[in-house]
Design a protein around this nucleic acid. Structure first.
Length: 157
DNA sequence: TGTTTTGGGGCTG
DNA sequence: CAGCCCCAAAACA
């Protein structure tokens, strides 16, 4: 089972990919027209996203497609333990995992499901860090706006 | 402000 | 396997 839909959000247009009844990928660069989810999971996720944008305290509870190396999976799982309104540095998460900041950054950079797997809650000790594979531009702006939505000022960066 | 250390991952032979 | 390169970091001089 495979479906893709595009939804609008206060932050950006979101393109959601669903495979094997799991969320598989999220993209922010869709210029395609908005389309409606067809599956139960798609509808549920759309609802959760709307709830999140209404209030950041609403987090996500959806199955995600197993992907990546063992280490990447460990990092991505750890990300889901960070609640809205909290941020960790790459180094702090690395310490929890017995790894290094550089390696954690590598894994975050390859997170296929940004926002839902909240890699935006990881920042550099000095600076904003990257988002969705980029280190500047539009995607960093989205990261800043997500963090702002979750209660942080625009001082990061 | 450099420079070095660092660990995961991809690529090549 | 080794060797080499790339990185969303951080420590250090």
């Amino acid at each position: 089972m495979h479906e893709t839909f595009v939804m609008d959000s206060p932050i950006y247009k979101l393109k959601i990919h669903i495979e094997q009844n799991c969320v598989a990928k999220v993209e922010f660069n869709s210029d395609e027209p908005v389309s409606l989810p067809a599956t139960d999971l798609g509808k549920k996720l759309q609802q959760q996203l709307n709830d999140y944008f209404r209030s950041p305290a609403n987090s996500f509870a959806v199955p995600v497609l197993p992907q990546g190396t063992d280490f990447q999976a460990r990092v991505w799982l750890a990300l889901t333990d960070i609640p809205p309104g909290k941020v960790l540095t790459y180094g702090e998460l690395a310490e929890k995992l017995g790894s290094s900041a550089r390696a954690v950054g590598n894994a975050c950079r390859r997170n296929p499901i940004p926002l839902i797997v909240p890699c935006h809650r990881i920042v550099a000790k000095s600076g904003i860090g990257g988002f969705a594979g980029d280190t500047d531009g539009r995607l960093i702006d989205i990261k800043l706006r997500l963090l702002e939505h979750e209660g942080f000022g625009l001082k990061l960066g």
